[in-house]
């Protein structure tokens, strides 16, 4: 069999990922998380008389702590593999990446394992966030004053 024919055969037989189904799931998951956060924020504002910014901080805190807790003691990884971007793009993904790298590298010791690999996955977010914010800030200052 020639190479091209073989590649065609491989393409035919490999199962295509169900993109449509996946994206509906992701949309629902992300959307539900947003709606849940908004409901809690409205409750905090209306019943506890908090400022809007304080309520936002409390909701983010709840989401981050629950993501860390679920990753450490329950099987959060299973859902992350299933729902991918639905859980990675919200702030839960940031907490999940820190927690999972802490758990994975704990076997190498407290300093050389856990300490030095803590930001293995979340480091890129912090690095590019700060660098891009700095660059955009300079651009805005130079062009708009």
């Amino acid at each position: 069999m020639e190479k091209k024919e073989y590649q065609k055969l491989v393409k035919k037989t490999t199962p295509k990922p169900d993109k449509m189904n996946n994206s509906i799931k992701v949309f629902l998951c992300g959307g539900l998380m947003g709606a849940f956060g908004e409901i809690i924020r409205l409750l905090l504002i209306n019943y506890f008389n908090l400022k809007s910014t304080d309520a936002v901080s409390i909701v983010l805190f709840i989401l981050i702590v629950s993501a860390c807790f679920l990753t450490a003691f329950c099987d959060f990884d299973k859902y992350v593999i299933k729902l991918k971007a639905g859980l990675i793009v919200p702030i839960t993904g940031f907490a999940h990446s820190i927690q999972s790298s802490a758990l994975d590298y704990k076997k190498d010791g407290m300093i050389t394992g856990l300490g030095s690999n803590f930001f293995k996955l979340a480091g890129s977010v912090i690095l590019y966030g700060i660098v891009s914010a700095f660059i955009f800030c300079v651009i805005k200052v130079v062009f708009y004053g």
Partner: peptide, 8 residues
């Protein structure tokens, strides 16, 4: 509202 503060 909150929906804009949750994504990364």
């Amino acid at each position: 509202g909150m929906g804009a503060s949750i994504p990364i």
